[in-house]
Design a binder for these strands. Structure first.
Length: 419
RNA sequence: GUGCCUGUAGCUCAGUUGGUUAGAGCGCCUGGUUGUGGUCCAGGAGGUCGCCGGUUCAAAUCCGGUCAGGCACCCCA
């Protein structure tokens, strides 16, 4: 009989308590900040009808064409594990007919799934935090959303490890005009473009601007500039976003090569990027997507938001913040069955009182004390026959080694003061 | 999906031009302490050298395949 494989599936990992604590630090920090900004938490399903993503992400995007975990369930439904959460949140908003409740602000945190070749900071099941702000067409929303991202990074002590890249994708007339100009320009330089970029010329010419190929870059140097094709409205919008960020003192660099693949994106596009994580340097990315709601069959609704990769943020946090320690418990160390029973009662009482308490399951005093040290207890309570007859317990300070006897009755109050 | 690098104990790694029973540190276990941890001392357990196949008298070491991780690309958080 063969042994089952116990390894996790490629691109997935098990998060043991230390790892989970690191993830939680990121997501709770973000959740707290988001709530301060008025974003309420939303949890949409981890799988959706495939259409939710196929329609919104378009059939040309890599995410849809080769990276989705798509399957048919037993009822024949075509379902997909969510590769991102903006579509899910928008779907939920449309389904609940909340258009009269606008503006709406949502925060989420949870697993996403993409069939990609794994690298550090890039897994097949990964986790994102994100925010979506629906129903505000003006630039104040963009500024607020970006500011929240900056403050999340600041709270994680990593804002100065990142650079905010900012660009505008303009409105539809701007983008159509620019796209036409780009196609025209690049078509005249086909012989100098990489194979990748020739493909992009068909699907998504804006992406050529972002190419890392050396020859492409030379061609891009002389390519038309978006600013020349922005409508007055689009230029004004972008100027207001920049003014808003300046007012808050949120630093950014203009990055004309920062683009988005999908048509429903418009105006603001931004990414917080670090150079500390290699090629997976984008730690938060987002933008405005006013066209999304209609694509999904909902009422035209403005939207702007961002998503951040928890794994990447956690890796950066490890570099910028001190180690996270599990809470230090009081360790109870009984000697003998009578003391064990008494201390299990005490453990119940302490835990009920909110005190982190550890009590082992076997072993002599030496083992009990070793365990107390291992779980990083600040105090040990030693109880044996000697103490029991006196109604006392021995309290040991695990740092100094000092011990004192205290009455068993009322020991909870003493320990509460030490915890 | 493409190219390249890596894979030895729980962890981090060593292992001479292929050559006997594959090592170290940390961690773990036991004892030194019948009621005292973390320090110290002594001892111990733990490895089909990722997996499968090939070359060879002989493979951790060379070759092929495969799986996994990593770097870059693609794409993206």
């Amino acid at each position: 009989m063969s042994v089952m494989s116990v390894r996790p599936v490629r691109g997935t990992v098990d998060l043991f308590p230390d790892d989970s604590r690191r993830h939680r630090r990121v997501s709770e920090t973000a959740r707290e900040l988001a709530e301060r900004y008025g974003f309420g938490e939303i949890n949409t399903p981890i799988f959706e009808f495939t259409d939710v993503f196929a329609r919104t992400l378009g059939d040309v995007s890599d995410v849809v064409t080769k990276e989705m975990y798509t399957f048919e369930d037993r009822g024949g439904e075509h379902l997909t594990l969510r590769p991102e959460n903006t579509a899910g949140v928008m779907r939920a908003f449309i389904a609940a007919k909340l258009q009269n409740a606008l503006p709406l602000k949502y925060f989420y945190s949870g697993p996403m799934f993409r069939y990609e070749r794994p690298q550090k900071g890039r897994q097949r099941q990964f986790h994102q935090i994100g925010v979506e702000l629906f129903g505000v067409p003006g630039p104040a929303a963009d500024v607020e959303v970006i500011a929240l991202g900056a403050q999340v990074l600041a709270a994680l002590n990593m804002l100065d490890q990142t650079v905010l890249h900012l660009n505008t994708l303009g409105d539809t007339p701007s983008r159509d005009a620019y796209r036409a100009a780009l196609i025209d320009y690049f078509s005249g330089h086909k012989d100098q473009l990489s194979e990748d970029s020739l493909g992009r010329l068909e699907k998504n010419p804006l992406r050529i601007l972002d190419s890392k190929d050396k020859n492409d870059r030379a061609v891009v140097e002389a390519a038309p500039v978006f600013d020349d094709y922005l409508t007055g409205e689009a230029a004004d919008f972008f100027a207001e976003v920049r003014q808003g960020l300046d007012d808050l003192g949120v630093a950014y660099i203009r990055d004309p090569r920062l683009v988005r693949g999908l048509d429903y994106y418009c105006h603001t596009a931004f990414e917080f990027v670090t150079d500390a994580l290699g090629a997976q340097g984008t730690v938060i990315g987002g933008g405005r997507y006013d066209g999304l709601a209609e694509i999904m069959g909902g009422p035209a609704t403005a939207g702007v938001g961002w998503a951040g990769g928890i794994e990447r943020l956690a890796m950066l946090a490890d570099q910028t913040m001190e180690e996270l320690e599990a809470p230090r418990p009081v360790a109870l160390a009984p000697i003998g069955d009578a003391a064990d029973r008494r201390l299990r009662q005490l453990a119940y009482e302490l835990r009920g009182a909110g005190i982190v308490t550890d009590i082992g399951y076997s072993g002599n005093l030496k083992r009990r004390m070793a365990r107390a040290a291992k779980v990083n207890a600040h105090t040990a309570v030693i109880l044996g026959d000697d103490e029991l007859v006196k109604g006392m317990a021995t309290l040991r300070d695990m740092e100094s080694g000092e011990q004192q006897e205290v009455p068993l009755d009322g020991i909870a109050a003493v320990l509460a003061a030490r915890s």
